[in-house]
């Protein structure tokens, strides 16, 4: 089985988000970048397939040279080789187009992406990629088993979960649950040394125009101070929620 894991290179979850150039660009100053958390769960599940069932695992990112340390980290966790499509990730559609080319050229059976990136929050790249390549698609995926060409997956739905059956080729949008938090791997010294020797292939992009353009950004308006209510006066809270906030 040939597995491709899509890796989005995102600001660490503790990052303060700021913008520059008149609020048109994300300010990367002092920001640590990491593998998108949903992709980390997917990568770990891919390693499980590799070790338990036999599979090759490639990772891919669409982005500039600055994303290479993130791809190296994925290699240190255990991926066999990495691909970087050398172009700015302008929008979800353009990214999906680039990925579709990689998937078709590489003949991948299973593509594991994340349900959502924590920076763009599009929740769209894997679905678009599936539609473009004609693969089956499951998102909010919290469990995946592959047996030959058939697959069984668990998907989180509003208020519960469902089990679905499908077949390869398949694209999933994964999240926590695909593997447990405690199964996530921190690269060790040996992994990091080996990652240096693994191939990281830089591909030139195909022509793919974005369909959306995030022209400017803004931050939420600063919040007023909290209104404290005395623990002995819960009536006041009920009153505030009813008469002032009007939420009950």
């Amino acid at each position: 089985m040939k597995i491709l894991v899509c890796i989005s290179h995102v600001p660490d979850t503790t990052s303060k988000i700021n913008f520059t150039d008149g609020d048109t660009k994300f300010d990367t100053n002092g920001v640590q970048f990491v593998i998108n958390p949903n992709d980390e769960f997917g990568l770990t599940r891919a390693m499980w397939f590799k070790e338990k069932q036999g599979a090759s695992v490639d990772v891919v990112n669409v982005g500039g040279a600055e994303t290479e340390p993130t791809l190296r980290k994925a290699l240190a966790i255990g991926a066999d080789s990495a691909i970087r499509v050398n172009t700015e990730a302008t929008d979800g559609f353009a990214v999906a187009k680039q990925l579709a080319k990689v998937v078709q050229d590489g003949g991948y059976d299973l593509v594991i992406a994340g349900r959502e990136s924590i920076d763009y929050n599009g929740g769209m790249v894997p679905g678009m990629l599936a539609a473009m390549t004609g693969a089956n698609y499951i998102t909010n995926c919290i469990g995946l088993e592959i047996d030959g060409a058939s697959a069984k997956a668990t998907r989180e739905i509003d208020g519960g979960k469902e089990t679905v059956s499908t077949a390869l080729p398949l694209v999933i949008g994964g999240q926590k649950g695909l593997v447990e938090e405690s199964d996530l791997r921190i690269p060790n010294m040996r992994g990091i040394m080996m990652a240096r020797k693994k191939p990281l292939n830089v591909l030139e992009p195909i022509d793919a125009k974005a369909e959306t353009n995030s022209a400017s950004f803004e931050k939420p308006a600063p919040k007023g101070a909290v209104k404290l209510v005395d623990a002995g006066n819960i009536d006041e809270l009920v009153d505030l929620l009813h008469n002032e906030a009007k939420v009950i």
Partner: peptide, 20 residues
């Protein structure tokens, strides 16, 4: 066609133009 959407997991908003 320009809409305001949340980005960076609610830490910011993006004013996004859809060009299609």
């Amino acid at each position: 066609f320009t809409v305001k959407r949340t980005a960076f997991t609610n830490k910011a908003f993006a004013n996004t133009e859809i060009t299609t």
